[in-house]
Design a protein around this nucleic acid. Structure first.
Length: 205
DNA sequence: TGCCAGGCCCTCTTTAGGGCCTT
């Protein structure tokens, strides 16, 4: 399954009030990064100091950067028709929809959520934050990877997804899971998701 | 003036509340 893995750094949590200040995205093909896209953006107002402390993205870094509405057409072309994957996808899909609408480019995109899948497949993790899961599973993000920068968070999500996909393929007798199966798994209640896995394990030849 | 996200998910639930995740 080809996926676009995406992550936004923003000025806050509200898609209605806050703006995107950085996007990272990659096209994942056979578990490998085939293309990548990263861009800082100027939100049109000062970045809150809390966000600069969290992400390291300062007002000086975005001073000469384009506003989100200028970046969205290029991002839309990059994502093309790929289904998207993000960690806590409801957050990123809300911001993507809000910024696309501001740019006059409204289009709903299907999303998978690595956090919701991990809650089904890694129930014993201390918590389901991206960094915790990567550490808990012993995954190795690329050297120099820094949490809360968009492309680095994308690469950690890729590492997590590759682990989850391998685990799902184990349930499916080696067959790679498709989008519909992953979506069913992450949207069903816990007990129903567990039943879905058990049924898949015996029904896939 | 005062406030400011939103949706999933669990449970001491369903006539509800609060923790988890994302920035």
């Amino acid at each position: 399954m080809e996926l676009a893995v995406i992550d936004f750094e923003t000025t806050g949590l509200s898609a209605g009030r806050d703006r995107i200040i950085e996007v990272g995205a990659v096209i994942l093909r056979d578990g490998r990064v085939a293309e990548s896209f990263v861009q800082l953006m100027h939100p049109g107002f000062p970045i809150p100091s809390f966000i600069t402390g969290l992400t390291g993205i300062s007002n000086a870094m975005v001073r000469d950067m384009p506003p989100p509405e200028e970046v969205m057409p290029r991002l839309g072309q990059f994502l093309d028709r790929h289904p998207c994957l993000a960690h806590n996808a409801s957050f990123d899909s809300r911001f993507l929809a809000a910024e696309m609408a501001r740019a006059g480019l409204g289009r709903e995109r299907p999303f998978l959520c690595s956090m919701r899948l991990a809650r089904r497949l890694v129930p014993d993790a201390p918590n389901h934050r991206l960094g915790t899961l990567v550490q808990h599973l012993g995954l190795r993000p690329p050297d120099g990877c820094r949490a809360h920068r968009a492309l680095d968070d994308v690469l950690m999500t890729v590492a997590l997804w590759n682990h989850l996909e391998t685990e799902l393929a184990g349930w499916l007798n080696g067959k790679s899971p498709d989008f519909a199966f992953c979506h069913r798994l992450m949207t069903r209640p816990k007990a129903a998701a567990a039943k879905l896995l058990r049924e898949a394990a015996v029904s896939v030849p």
